[in-house]
Each structure stands twice: as structure tokens, then as C-alpha cells.
Amino acid sequence: MTIELSKPDHEQAIASIERYFRVNRDERIGNLEAGALLAFFLEELAPVAYNRGVTDAQSNIQTRVAEVDFEVHQTEFGYWSKFDKAAKGKR
């Protein structure tokens, strides 16, 4: 699966890359070069971050599913237990 950006995000990413080179490397990088670098990052590095996000989401969901039993569990056939407890208290 190719990771793609929306047009506004793509434009903002290119502007950010151009700014990074200008501010941190004191170099000017053109729009085409910044676009090529962005394409490389999206193809080569973005899947690493994406996969990590998926793994983190799966872990979070699995934790929440494991907690569901404790949060919503209802005692079955509990009607008589309240009477049994009351009877034991009277002894």
C-alpha cells in the first residue's frame, strides 16, 4: 500500500522540507527536489511509522477489549444471592 498525502498536506510538506533546508542547512532546495525527497520519505520511511501506528493501535484495542469483561460484566443468576446474604447476616 502506498502512503499518499492529500494535496494540502503534500504542499505543506514540500514547503516544510524547503524551509528545513533553508533554516537548518543554509541551502535552497527547489520545489522539484523537495517533492522528490518527500516521495522518497513516503515510500521508504513512512511505512515504518505507519506500521508502528498500526501496532500501537492494535495493542491499545486489545487492552481495551480485555478490560471490557471487568467493566460491563454482570453477575448471572444473582437474584437469590442477595437473600442468601441477608439470611446469613441474621444467623
Rank of each mutant, 00 (worst) to 15 (best):
G30T: 05
D26T: 04
M1H: 07
A66D: 09
F41N: 03
N60W: 04
R22L: 13
N51T: 02
A13P: 08
T55R: 15
G53M: 08
A57R: 10
A13S: 15
A87C: 11
H73I: 06
K85P: 00
P8F: 08
L42D: 03
L37A: 14
L5H: 02
R28Y: 15
Q12E: 07
G78Q: 04
R25W: 00
R25M: 02
F40L: 12
V65T: 07
E76D: 14
F70S: 08
E18G: 06
E27A: 03
H73N: 06
T63C: 12
F40I: 13
I29P: 00
H10F: 11
D26V: 04
K90Y: 04
D56Y: 12
R91L: 15
L45K: 09
G89K: 14
I17A: 05
L45Y: 13
V54P: 01
I17H: 04
F77E: 15
P8I: 10
T55I: 15
Y50D: 05
T75E: 11
R91I: 13
A36C: 00
A87K: 12
S81H: 10
E67V: 01
A39N: 05
K90I: 12
E71W: 07
P8M: 07
D56H: 10
F70V: 03
W80E: 02
R22H: 08
